[in-house]
């Protein structure tokens, strides 16, 4: 390629980039923004309500004589059960539509992210459908959870 051609290409690329920038600006002006305030308030209310339910379960279990650790683990398991059940009944996605992160971040949302893909891909069989898709979201969560906790443990071991 001759030098002038190279420069021509470079110029073309630059022009293309400028056009793209300009267009991005145009889109910014016409694109509706998500209603951040409303979404945040809803996330607060829905997320708070889910945690409140968790606290009620925790309180009840402790009252029934479970130790702190057992009560916490049982609460998590019950919340996961509820999240899975509501997903199966087709209710959790409706909560998610309004709650956003409020229903995504609690452990019930974790259950939702396990059931939804597994249920939908059941038609692809019980190994590659249900079995594999259970971990679409749970997989990455466990991978990074284990990675970080192991690193935390190792650092603690070294500086102890």
């Amino acid at each position: 390629m001759t030098q002038s051609q190279g420069q021509g290409n470079l110029q073309q690329q630059k022009m293309q980039q400028e056009l793209q920038q300009e267009y991005k600006q145009l889109v910014k002006n016409v694109k509706p923004r998500p209603p951040v305030l409303k979404n945040t308030i809803l996330a607060f209310l829905v997320g708070g309500a889910i945690c409140l339910i968790g606290q009620l379960i925790l309180w009840f279990l402790k009252k029934e004589g479970l130790g702190d650790k057992e009560a916490a683990a049982a609460t998590a398991a019950i919340m996961i059960f509820l999240g899975a059940l509501l997903t199966g009944l087709g209710i959790y996605d409706v909560i998610g539509k309004y709650g956003g992160a409020g229903s995504m971040v609690p452990i019930t949302g974790f259950a939702n992210s396990i059931v939804a893909p597994a249920m939908e891909f059941k038609r692809e069989g019980f190994v590659f459908g249900v079995g594999a898709r259970l971990f679409t979201v749970a997989g990455p969560v466990l991978v990074y959870g284990f990675l970080v906790s192991t690193v935390v443990g190792l650092i603690y071991y070294l500086i102890r």
């Binding site: 683990a73 998590a76 199966g88 259950a111 396990i114 059931v115 249920m119 906790s149």
Partner: peptide, 25 residues
Amino acid sequence: GAEATAAGIVAAVVFGYAAAVLFNP
């Protein structure tokens, strides 16, 4: 880490599996 969270993880797999098998989207 895994030991402390084993109950939750297995609960998620078991309940998740059951719900996925029992229900349809």
